[in-house]
Amino acid sequence: MSASEWNSGDYPKRLRRARQKAGLTQAELANRLGTKQFNISRIEGGQRPRKPLFSRITAFIEDTERPPAKAQDQIVSAIAHSDELKALIARIVAEL
């Protein structure tokens, strides 16, 4: 996650959504990340965390936003069986 994402105000919102999606309270998330509840509250309120905590929070957000492996497999399967995709692949192969 970049500084521009932080500056856009998106980071605190993403953290709150990820925490809620994971079904965690601020205190539970803080415990998991090795910090205090008031830090999570401040960050969700817009205060930028220090670098080590920023990295742990970023990893938590990205893990939470990533679809589960089963969902990924279903998405890949649906795409692979798409007639449009098959036609596109056939055109690309024909051009090789």
Rank of each mutant, 00 (worst) to 15 (best):
M1D: 10
S2A: 06
A3T: 14
A3Q: 15
A3E: 14
A3C: 08
S4G: 02
S4T: 10
S4M: 01
S4Y: 02
E5L: 14
S8H: 01
G9D: 03
D10Q: 12
D10T: 11
Y11Q: 03
Y11P: 08
P12V: 00
L15H: 02
R16Y: 00
R17S: 03
R19L: 00
R19E: 04
R19C: 03
K21F: 04
A22W: 03
A22P: 04
A22L: 00
G23T: 09
G23A: 09
L24V: 07
L24R: 08
Q26W: 07
A27Y: 07
A27H: 10
A27T: 09
E28L: 03
A30T: 01
N31K: 12
N31E: 14
L33Y: 09
L33C: 09
G34E: 00
G34T: 03
T35N: 06
T35R: 11
F38V: 10
F38N: 14
N39S: 08
N39G: 00
S41K: 09
S41M: 09
S41R: 14
R42W: 03
I43R: 03
I43P: 08
I43H: 07
I43W: 04
E44L: 09
E44N: 13
G45E: 05
Q47P: 01
P49Y: 13
K51D: 12
P52G: 07
L53W: 14
L53Q: 14
L53V: 13
F54Y: 15
F54P: 07
F54D: 15
S55G: 12
S55W: 13
I57S: 10
I57F: 11
I57E: 11
I57R: 11
T58E: 15
T58I: 15
F60G: 08
I61S: 10
I61F: 13
T64L: 01
R66F: 11
P67D: 03
P67I: 15
P68D: 07
P68Y: 02
P68G: 06
A69Y: 03
A69P: 10
K70T: 04
A71F: 08
Q72W: 09
Q72M: 12
D73W: 11
I75K: 12
I79D: 06
A80W: 10
A80E: 15
H81T: 06
S82F: 13
S82E: 13
S82H: 14
D83G: 02
D83W: 05
D83I: 05
E84T: 15
E84L: 15
E84D: 15
K86D: 12
A87P: 02
A87V: 04
L88F: 08
L88N: 02
I89D: 07
I89L: 13
R91H: 09
R91I: 05
I92F: 06
I92Q: 01
I92A: 05
V93F: 01
V93S: 06
V93I: 08
A94L: 07
A94Q: 06
E95P: 00
E95H: 04
E95Q: 09
